[in-house]
Simulated assay, not measured.
Amino acid sequence: MKKSIKVVYTFVLLFVIQFSFAQTEYGTLSFNKAVNISGKQRMLTQRMGKIYLYLLNNPTDYKAKRDMKITQIIFEKQNNILEKNASSSLTKSKIKEVKDTWVKYKKFLNSSPNKQDALKVINTNSTILSYANNVVNAVISESNTKNNAADVDVADEDNELKQIINKSGRQRMLSQRLALYYFANKPDLKSSNTENKLKSVYNELDTALSDLLISSFNNDRIDNALGAVMAKWEGIQQNKQRLFKQGYGDKEIYDLSNDLTKLFNRITSLYEKLKVE
């Protein structure tokens, strides 16, 4: 009889452990991974817009055309992954907003580069970006709801980690958005709005980088990765008028934005792997 009770107790204990584990995951993903992936979606919306505007003046660049195709495939696949693993109605509704807007955005992006559709890309990219950002916030909110940490301090620290993953991931988006609005400031597309957005993106990127440098989650690997991105960023920072006055070649700013994105992606992945205990 005692053996039977012990078996039942063990089974119940295992069930509780499994249930608790399930409640701290975003479907088959960890919440850290879900925040990272949803954050990448923001970056991809801007990368596609950047590529389209680049192709407007560089229509024979085969690699850029290939980048557009690959980026679209990844964006759609990751949207499906996020949708499949979402459990809250809020997250699902935010993902639907992205998918609905994507239909229109994709139509512009797949047109043969022309000024009329370029203006539509400029006008639409911020809308889909906003919706993609809402998905990130919904994932973080879902994480907070499912956080079963008995220790309030642990729960708070875990939320802080999600926020730093979010902030680091946002830097990838800003790196692409910086180039997008650099191209949007070409003489045939430029407006006071595009000029202001370029400066706004630059300032946000610069400020958020300072925030990452002083994060309490930083370790030696993260510090080294931040040092690499700072070296790259200081080259832009020391001569920012070159950015605002169209001083870069098209291919130069295209590649520079990709280099920054890769560096910030590395940092975000390192934050993702951290655990609060």
Rank of each mutant, 00 (worst) to 15 (best):
F183L: 04
K251W: 03
L226F: 08
N80E: 13
I95K: 02
K6E: 15
I164A: 05
N137L: 10
D220P: 03
V35P: 01
T101N: 13
V35T: 08
L14S: 09
L129P: 01
R42A: 02
V154E: 14
K197P: 02
I164G: 03
L213E: 15
L209N: 07
E142A: 07
I267S: 00
K275S: 13
V98W: 00
E234A: 08
D188T: 14
L180Y: 04
N148T: 15
I17M: 15
V152I: 13
K262C: 04
T71W: 04
S30D: 11
V152N: 08
N79H: 09
L44W: 02
Q23E: 11
I95T: 02
A228C: 07
K99N: 13
Q46Y: 05
T101M: 11
M68V: 07
N185Y: 04
M173I: 02
I74T: 12
R47Q: 08
T45K: 01
N123E: 13
P187G: 09
N166K: 15
S38H: 04
K96Y: 11
N148M: 15
Q116P: 06
N32V: 06
G249W: 05
F217Q: 05
F75I: 02
V139M: 04
E142P: 03
D100T: 13
L198V: 02
V152S: 13
D250H: 00
F11K: 15
N166Q: 15
G249L: 08
Q41P: 05
G169F: 01
P59A: 11
L119T: 07
A138Q: 03
Q238A: 10
Q241V: 06
L53P: 00
K77L: 10
K115C: 08
R66E: 13
K77P: 04
L178D: 02
S191G: 06
Q72G: 12
E97F: 09
N36Y: 07
Y9C: 14
G249F: 06
I165C: 05
T10N: 14
A179E: 00
E252Y: 04
L109S: 01
D158C: 08
M48L: 15
K240T: 03
K167T: 12
K6T: 12
K63I: 10
R170A: 06
F244G: 01
Q23T: 09
E204N: 09
T127F: 10
I95V: 09
K245Y: 04
Q46I: 01
N133H: 08
Q163C: 08
Y54P: 02
N239P: 11
M173P: 03
K33W: 10
F19K: 12
L14N: 09
I253F: 01
F15M: 14
D158E: 14
D223K: 13
F21V: 12
N36A: 08
A34R: 01
E234H: 09
L53V: 05
Q238K: 12
T91P: 05
Y271F: 14
S210V: 14
N265D: 15
Y54K: 01
S210K: 12
A179D: 04
A155R: 07
V16E: 12
N265R: 07
A118F: 03
N80Y: 09
L56I: 08
S257Q: 06
L56A: 06
I95L: 10
